[in-house]
Design a protein around this nucleic acid. Structure first.
Ligand code: FES
Ligand code: FES
Lengths: 161, 161
DNA sequence: CCGAATCTTGACTGATTCACTCCGGATTGA
DNA sequence: TCAATCCGGAGTGAATCAGTCAAGATTCGG
């Protein structure tokens, strides 16, 4: 299970705007070049971010994109949902094993697992804001997340494997 | 982001063996028929479960599959990893945005988010055992998971949306 | 010891999704 | 006007998914 590149690119673009967008709108082409991403694809991602109300666009000669609100008010979940459509999709909804089997009227003891997982994923992604990723570099961000989420600290956020 | 049907089928099969496998090995064909799954595909899934050491197989006329150990010792994570290969794949490892950009020597403030998410996912899936899914039906399982994981209870395990 | 039932392995296939491009059009500032 | 930008959507090659199929190995009953 993984996110597509759209989530990654979406975060990169949002982060780029949070860093360099204060002085005025940033053109998609320029952003793509600076971040070394495919230009046309970047444009498409930005369009999705705009449709979700995360960024605003300015058309015309010196147009481009800006964050629609403060970086503290934009969560990773917002960006992921905007780009991917959803965070974690419940299989038995969109890709049911069997029509009747996966119907809500039928009892399934596996279903609660996916719902619980989705809740966990959404909780974490919603808690992390774009502003959290702006300072401290990779180490700083890791520590910040680690502090916030050390409730069930059986495993830790090392990069082992 | 979603799991493929293999994770779902893997859980269904494991659960089936936990329920009906006490009396001796269950044939793949028989299991597929009872659970209403494609026969050949079921066989393939069971192979993966065996390769991961979750079930054992008996060849020959009255052969079939059995759980390799107690249902309390098999976590949902075990089954998902056996069938899908991994729970949550870090994009920048297998599908890097850019070769140098995603190298560990470079600083990336997005990376910690994915590592934290993987940790969360693994924690939850590892805590839930096959034995937890055997009793209480859907409602019972939901309550059980809810009690175990109500640490960050901002959201709850309702089925809304 | 033969043959039926079962697991084992791996190749194969159609459908879908992914990652990305391309094109024609609308909007704006110089 | 024209050049730069955003906008929408169609199109494309590659990869993955979901599932099938065929050929072989193992075991047991008779
Ligand atoms: S198998 Fe679809 S809801 Fe359980
Ligand atoms: S974009 Fe790949 S590691 Fe951050």
């Amino acid at each position: 299970m993984r996110f597509t590149t759209q989530a990654e690119y979406g975060l990169i673009c949002t982060l780029h705007l949070a860093r360099f967008g204060a002085a005025g709108p940033v053109a998609a082409r320029e952003m793509a070049e600076k971040e070394d991403l495919p230009a046309d694809y970047t444009e498409k991602i930005l369009r999705r971010l705009r449709q979700a109300g995360i960024v605003t666009s300015v058309r015309g000669v010196s147009g481009g994109f800006e964050l629609a609100r403060d970086a503290r008010e934009i969560s990773v979940k917002d960006v992921v949902e905007a780009t991917e459509g959803s965070t974690f999709e419940i299989n038995c909804r969109q890709h049911p094993v069997g029509a009747e089997r996966c119907d809500t009227t039928h009892d399934c003891s596996i279903r609660p697992v996916w719902y619980a997982l989705r809740t966990k994923i959404d909780e974490l992604l919603d808690q992390i804001r774009i502003s959290d990723l702006l300072e401290g570099g990779e180490v700083g961000v890791t520590e910040l997340i680690d502090i916030t989420w050390q409730d069930h600290g059986d495993t830790n956020l090392t990069m082992e494997r």
